[in-house]
Amino acid sequence: MDSDNQLKAKKSVEVKNPQGLHLRPGEVFTRTASEFKSTIEVISGDRRVDGKSLLDIATLGASQGTQLEIEAHGPDAEAAVEVLAKIVETSSVDELTKEP
């Protein structure tokens, strides 16, 4: 299924966390991103970084209100973008890390 591997998904999101996409939300983001097979990139202005690298994400310095684009290539691209967009749009880390 060659076409499956070519799947591409893209979504624009706004950072909601008051402290921005800093290390802790970034950690959740990259941990989640790493669970997907697709390559994931995050775009902010003219910068494009590896969505599975916490260091790279952190260097974006994305603060609250920053517009980001999440782009995924791969078999699970669609799902990845959906899940990751949710993380960026969540306003508190505790919501992400609270026990199930």
Partner: peptide, 14 residues
Amino acid sequence: AIFGAHLKMLHDTR
């Protein structure tokens, strides 16, 4: 969690 983030950076694949 601060140190959790340090761990993550330490193991950052890039």
